[in-house]
Amino acid sequence: MKGHLQEGVFSLLLAVAAAILCVSAMGIPGSAHGSIAPSAFPSVITFAIAVLAALNVIACFLKGKKADNLPAISRQGFLNLILFVAFSTAYVWAMSVAGFLIPTFFYLVLMPVFICMISADRKGLLAKPAFWARVIVFAVIGTGIIYGVFVELLKVRF
């Protein structure tokens, strides 16, 4: 899909989401004497977003006929994104279940490996034992420093 088409689809999703939120905002109860209702601001804002996003959809398709300067997000790019978000969400969930230390250590081991796997010029590193040793050392030191700063110094409790 070309860049302008992707932007058009994104704008369309934005317009739909804003329209749904607008309907929801109009249902906010209550009124204030001598002033505007609590629903007024969110309703007007969501309505404006929906209209502007719809206008941008039209602009995208009109622009697309002339020239497409916007590089599209490739399939591999989308996959990288999804995997990064999935791994990171799993890390946050694991932290909520198992605390800070173990999930953070494993995240710091797995993410560099994952990034090297998807990078054209870093794949070769995976075959080198020194790389794995470096990753382990990085994960141990990284976990230790973050633990020291946030848990010991700033007293964050998980």
Partner: peptide, 19 residues
């Protein structure tokens, strides 16, 4: 290298917001 930097930045963001 970015493969060290990006996970570290994410952890920093996540724990910072959680705190």
């Amino acid at each position: 290298p970015q493969h060290y930097l990006l996970p570290l930045i994410f952890i920093f963001c996540a724990i910072g917001v959680f705190s």
